[in-house]
Nucleic acid binder design. Structure first.
Length: 425
RNA sequence: GGAGAGAUGGCCGAGUGGUCGAAGGCGCACGCCUGCUAAGCGUGUGUAGGGGUAACACUCUACCGAGGGUUCGAAUCCCUCUCUCUCCGCCA
């Protein structure tokens, strides 16, 4: 959520910035109008309440019964006026908040301006895509031949976009989870979190998934519990409505969770293989930092994500999103993409974003810069570290050999009891 | 799932209709005092929103788990919900 004060004080700057992410000027004017309406209503209500407060105070001090009764009778009408004014405030507040919650974040001034993903910028490519003496096969062929991915049974028990990992396939994914968490904990200074995978609705409002993107989420209707689409949701909300004491920032967490997404927007796309499922695993990094440091923290976060690729020796590239391709909540965002030689495409395995105070304002996450100082909103950031089945794709396709076997990258071997090669059966 | 108890400021804890944003204590901050330390004394110490100011000051409103109700007036009475604790049952 944006700071309404900023919109009030510098409406033109806000309009210009929001225009680059596709928000029309009229929307900002609408916000401003709702704000004026809301404040007028509040002022009226508070005037009435102050009046009543005075009157009640006097009544309390009155000793004479008749005088008292007269004063009470005279004040009685105020109650109805206040109820009416309260209803006006509530309605104005609701209209205002609803619009505020649906307004996207302001892009960071350094973000390249552009209409859509065609204007994204490839920042760097790391490593050289391996050249093959044979036509590299896509992971769905490799996986079936190796007996480690079972698409048919996945569809049988759960429908399309579900698959079953089996044997060393399941183990490879589990090894990656454990190893990646260890990398971030041991080498990058994150603290591991095991969060709930089902959360209350407010959490999703806090991170910005609701109210706008509810149709991508799964939900238990009976208890109104929502399945997390990413660990970002529970982990960011860990400190919802809290004030972090001086000296606690930066807070750096890494968490593994399964993630659940309806993928309605991409119906019919990427249905082949395990690239895009309704359920997938992900290791996620989340940071809470002081505002002045958040740009540097984003660079560090991105490097932490890339480090996973480096350690696995997987060629990858970093792409900066232009304004038009920024997510709703992000002020700046970089994707890390792995090259998958089998399906011949770049696979997004991480999305590293700085949300600045956008989520913090929604979720009420603040910190105290110094003892006695006034609380301020933190900046939140997060990035995948990394997204799972896609790293499995990258490994299978990159390390395949002519006979269909796949070499397991060195760092993962200890996590797989020393298995070095997966062989077709 | 059944029965019961509870939720007050950073913490402990008082308050059962009026002048209570809330006694007292602890903690913390600043000042004083004191060879040092400790003790002592004094002052201060929440959050959010509105108005106001160049910025302070100042002022109003809300908040005693959440929401609703009764009342001129609610931390205090009523209803609903959430969470915590205890016991029983069940379960990984």
């Amino acid at each position: 959520m944006l700071d309404i004060r900023l919109i009030r004080d510098r409406p033109d700057a806000v309009k210009r910035a929001l225009a680059t992410v596709g928000v029309r000027e009229a929307e900002v004017d609408g916000l401003l109008a709702l704000d004026v309406e809301r404040r007028a209503a509040i002022t009226r209500l508070e005037t009435l309440k102050a009046e009543r407060g005075q009157a009640s105070k006097k009544i309390g001090a009155l000793k004479d019964a008749a005088e008292r009764d007269r004063a009470i009778a005279a004040t009685r009408g105020l109650g109805d006026e206040i109820s009416a004014a309260e209803a006006v405030v509530a309605a104005a507040e609701e209209r205002f908040t609803a619009r505020m919650l649906e307004t996207p974040n302001l892009p960071h001034p350094d973000v390249p301006v552009g209409p859509d993903d065609s204007a994204n910028v490839v920042v760097r490519e790391v490593g050289t895509p391996r050249s093959f003496a044979f036509p590299p096969r896509p992971h769905w062929e490799l996986g079936e031949a190796l007996g480690i991915i079972d698409f048919e049974r996945g569809a049988k028990i759960s429908g399309s976009r579900f698959y079953v990992l089996k044997g060393d396939g399941a183990r490879l994914q589990r090894a990656l989870i454990g190893w990646m968490i260890d990398v971030h904990v041991r080498h990058h200074g994150y603290t591991e979190i095991y969060p709930p995978a089902m959360v209350r609705r407010e959490c999703l409002v806090g991170t910005g998934n609701l109210p706008k993107f509810g149709d991508n989420l799964y939900r238990d209707v009976e208890d109104d519990l929502w399945f997390v689409p990413t660990a970002e949701v529970p982990v960011t909300n860990l400190y919802r409505d809290e004030i972090l004491e001086p000296g606690t920032l930066p807070v750096k967490h890494v968490a593994y969770t399964p993630c659940f997404r309806r993928e309605k927007m991409s119906a019919g796309r990427d249905v082949r293989g395990i690239k895009r499922g309704h359920q997938f695993d992900k290791v996620e990094m989340v940071k809470f930092v002081e505002p002045a440091t958040s740009d540097a923290e984003l660079a560090a976060l991105l490097d932490d994500a890339e480090d996973v690729c480096r350690r696995l020796d997987l060629p990858h590239r970093v792409v900066q999103m232009c304004t038009g391709d920024l997510s709703f909540t992000a002020a700046m965002k970089f994707d890390v993409e792995l090259w998958a030689p089998g399906c011949a495409e770049w696979l997004e395995v991480s999305s590293c974003s700085n949300f600045r105070d956008f989520q913090a304002r929604r979720a009420g996450i603040r910190y105290r810069p110094a003892a006695q100082a006034k609380p301020e909103l933190v900046h939140t950031l997060n990035g995948s570290g990394l997204a799972l089945p896609r790293v499995v794709i990258g490994i299978l396709e990159t390390y395949q050999q002519a006979d269909g076997s796949v070499v397991i990258p060195e760092p993962l071997r200890p996590y797989m009891s020393g298995v070095e090669v997966l062989r077709p059966r």
